[in-house]
């Protein structure tokens, strides 16, 4: 594939990803509302919210927080660009991690106890899902002998039949990144939680909007990684179905469970995630998958 085409797709990705992300958030809210027997907000509501936030007064608790907020957005966008350029999957993930750490540091740079606790919990959350995300790449590399996304496109055969265990582990990660029950620990989706959206309590106005947009990027990036599991072959459109399907499963789980505590989350994600991926790696090495 030509370089020009790749760069073009990267530009398109940067523009389209937040649109998809916002749209998915809108549909998410609508579907959740319907599951609860409500009408719910209009599908475009997330965009209205962000536009309204941009129109608000610029108010910031500390300059450092601002820098970290921007760093978060920039790094996430960079990760998306690298993904679109079909670069090394490890590079994409590590840039993503760095971005998330900046978000937590941004929260920790403010003195508000809510923000502090939120930042602390975000780090714990990070501790819970990043190892799984990182480990999930290993079976892919084992299968294809390369960490490059381009290789997945070139391989010519879908990954899901071999790597469905890792895929399930990634679903847990998706739930955490989307901040859904039972994992909405650091900043609950609705502020009805002891920390009042701890992580972003101290962000307001346009800066909150930036964080929101970065979340959209993050979600789309993660869904794309899930989509990689069936990106080739004649049924390439299955990749979109898989990504949206897993997104829908997370919505369902969100609606049928209560929020749990961080200690439980840490235990669950580590035990479930690592054993799933570990057995996947084992099975690949044994030649069963």
């Amino acid at each position: 594939m030509s370089t020009g085409w790749l760069i073009g797709s990267a530009v398109i990705a940067v523009i389209v990803a937040p649109l998809i992300g916002g749209l998915l958030r809108g549909i998410d809210r609508k579907l959740t509302a319907h599951m609860q027997g409500r009408i719910g907000p209009p599908i475009m509501q997330p965009f209205y919210d962000v536009i309204k936030l941009f129109g608000k007064e610029r108010c910031v608790a500390g300059k450092a927080q601002l820098v970290f907020g921007y760093a978060y957005l920039t790094l996430i966008v960079t990760a998306v660009v690298f993904f679109a350029l079909r670069q090394d999957l490890l590079v994409v993930l590590f840039i993503l991690f760095l971005g998330c750490i900046f978000l937590a540091i941004g929260a920790l740079s403010v003195k508000s106890p809510y923000s502090q606790l939120g930042g602390h919990r975000e780090l714990l959350q990070f501790l819970a899902y990043e190892p799984i995300l990182l480990l999930a790449v290993v079976p892919i590399a084992l299968k294809l002998q390369s960490f490059r996304i381009a290789t997945i496109f070139e391989s010519g055969q879908p990954l899901l039949p071999h790597l469905w265990l890792s895929f399930i582990a990634l679903l847990i990660v998706l739930a955490i990144v989307m901040r859904k029950s039972p994992f909405d620990i650091s900043s609950s989706e609705h502020a009805h939680q002891e920390l009042v959206r701890g992580l972003v309590t101290e962000y307001a106005g346009p800066y909150l909007a930036l964080i929101e947009i970065a979340h959209w990027y993050e979600m789309v990036l993660l869904l794309s990684i899930l989509g990689l599991f069936w990106v080739v072959g004649s049924l390439w459109w299955l990749s979109i179905i898989i990504a949206l399907g897993s997104w829908f499963i997370i919505l369902i789980v969100d609606n049928i469970s209560a929020r749990l505590t961080w200690s439980w989350m840490l235990r669950f994600t580590w035990v479930a995630g690592i054993s799933l991926i570990g057995s996947n790696i084992l099975f690949i090495n044994l030649g069963w998958m």
Partner: peptide
């Protein structure tokens, strides 16, 4: 968890009970 599932599944495919008052 599964005990809530039938309810939300039913709600998803029926008319919302709220009104646009």
């Amino acid at each position: 968890m599964p005990w809530m599932f039938p309810t939300i599944w039913k709600n998803l495919f029926s008319r919302p009970v709220t009104r646009r008052y």
